[in-house]
Design a protein around this nucleic acid. Structure first.
Length: 287
DNA sequence: TGCAGTGTTGCTTC
DNA sequence: CGAAGCAACACTGC
């Protein structure tokens, strides 16, 4: 489930592997994923022959910065629920134990074919991923209407507090609001609130200064830790080698309904529906 | 066997 | 106007 740590891991890996590579062609069997330009020909043409300068992350978006044309061009990709990128080198695909052969990766719907023969392939079981181009000379389309990134230097505690002012909803849904803060989804919002000892159903306007501080610290701590662990792989998420992340092994509440909270307070993890999503928390230590 | 549930987002409806 | 519901899709598990 690509949230900020998973997208960061993919961006880092792609940057290490394919920065500098030239795009020889693109391929897709699901052209609906290109949301802009909507015509596949117009989407495809500007990509051919461009050099991938670097790959970075913005919120949950992957940003491929391309050079070689008259203007700067960015290929932006949102992985939604089940998307992940694999870097495939056909010449080296001999070992059947290569995790790239896993069943979960048999859902490739888009490829950047590189001049050196490798492919950066987007695997997406549920076909929810979206891709689009951002031309520096054209009016920016409202594809990326996202809030501040937690790793932006301007994301200070005071900024965080300011963003939450006058917010009426529960803290979990607010943390997942991409227009406010970008990158946190269902897994990490649960984990962050456990770390901060805050009940996910708490109204944002009921939180004290010290509780807000605990949440802010938890955001930074949990996201950094998850990036170190290369993300969470309960399900389809894999890195560009097809390997799993390790964060699911240290998750405290997410997907642990019924288990005892590891704080040793005797609380059993509860699962509640919050805005049509599953939220997990320990009723004993999260107040 | 069939249907509810699954990480995300954005559009529709009330 | 904000909140809630649901659709987009494929697969898993009860």
């Amino acid at each position: 489930m690509p949230e900020l740590p998973e997208v960061q891991t993919i961006a880092n890996d792609l940057n290490g592997k394919i920065a500098g590579a030239i795009i020889a062609g693109i391929w897709s069997d699901w052209k609906k994923m290109a949301v802009w330009p909507e015509s596949w020909k117009e989407f495809e043409a500007p990509l051919i022959g461009k050099r991938i300068e670097n790959v970075s992350r913005k919120g949950k978006f992957l940003m491929f910065k391309l050079a070689g044309g008259k203007e700067e061009l960015i290929l932006a990709v949102h992985l939604r629920m089940t998307g992940h990128f694999l870097v495939i080198d056909e010449k080296k695909r001999k070992n059947k134990n290569d995790p790239i052969y896993e069943k979960v990766n048999g859902h490739i719907h888009f490829k950047l074919i590189l001049e050196d023969g490798r492919e950066a392939a987007l695997s997406d079981l549920r076909k929810f991923a979206k891709i689009f181009l951002i031309f520096s000379s054209r009016e920016a389309r409202k594809c990326i209407n996202i809030g501040i990134d937690p790793f932006d230097s301007e994301f200070t505690f005071n900024k965080f507090k300011e963003l939450l002012e006058n917010k009426k909803g529960n803290i979990k849904q607010i943390l997942m609001d991409q227009a406010l803060i970008s990158g946190i989804g269902n897994i990490y919002s649960s984990e962050i609130l456990w770390e901060a000892k805050i009940n996910p159903l708490r109204k944002a306007d009921s939180l004290s200064e010290s509780e807000l501080k605990a949440i802010y610290r938890a955001i930074m701590k949990i996201l950094k830790l998850a990036i170190e662990k290369r993300g969470s792989s309960e399900s389809d998420y894999r890195d560009t080698d097809g390997k799993k992340g390790a964060y699911q092994n240290i998750q405290r509440v997410y997907q642990r309904e019924g288990e005892l909270c590891c704080r040793g307070d005797g609380g059993a993890i509860k699962r509640v529906k919050i805005g049509q999503r599953s939220g997990f928390y320990c009723p004993a230590c999260q107040r």
